[in-house]
C-alpha cells in the first residue's frame, strides 16, 4: 500500500471530486466512477476514503448535498458544486498545474 497511487491521491482527492462535479451533480458512486473514467483507471479511488472527503468538502462549504432519485429510481444523495467550490476548484487546479510543472521540471533536469 505504501507506494500505491492512492497515497498520491489523498491530498488531491478533494480536487478530483470537485472536478468530477464540474458539469453536473452526482451521487457518491457516480463521483467515483467519473474520477476513474477521467483518470482512465490509472488512478483508482479508494472508495472508503471518498465519503469522509465529501463530508469535509461539504463542511468547508465547497459542495452541497441533497437527496434525490437515481437513474434506477432509487433514493440517493446527490452532491453539487457551490459557487465557492467552483472558485476553489479553479484555484486548486491552477496550483496543482504549477506544482506538476515544477515536479516535471525537476524530473526532466534531474
Amino acid at each position: 500500500m505504501a507506494t500505491s497511487p492512492n497515497d498520491l491521491l489523498q491530498g488531491t482527492l478533494g480536487l478530483l471530486a470537485l472536478r468530477a462535479l464540474r458539469d453536473e451533480s452526482r451521487h457518491g458512486w457516480g463521483i467515483q466512477q467519473r474520477i476513474n473514467q477521467i483518470a482512465d483507471n490509472v488512478l483508482s479511488v479508494n472508495q472508503g476514503s471518498l465519503y469522509p472527503a465529501l463530508i469535509r468538502l461539504e463542511k468547508q462549504g465547497l459542495i452541497k448535498s441533497e437527496w434525490g432519485t437515481s437513474e434506477a429510481g432509487r433514493r440517493a444523495k446527490y452532491y453539487s458544486l457551490t459557487a465557492k467550490g467552483r472558485k476553489q476548484m479553479d484555484a486548486e487546479a491552477a496550483n496543482w498545474r504549477k506544482f506538476a510543472t515544477v515536479v516535471d521540471l525537476i524530473l526532466e533536469t534531474a
Binding site: 457518491g28 458512486w29 472508495q47 465519503y51 437515481s70 440517493a76
Partner: peptide
C-alpha cells in the same frame, strides 16, 4: 443509506 447505495451500485 448512502454507503449501502454505493455498494449496491457497485
Amino acid at each position: 443509506e448512502e454507503l449501502q447505495f454505493h455498494l449496491e451500485m457497485e
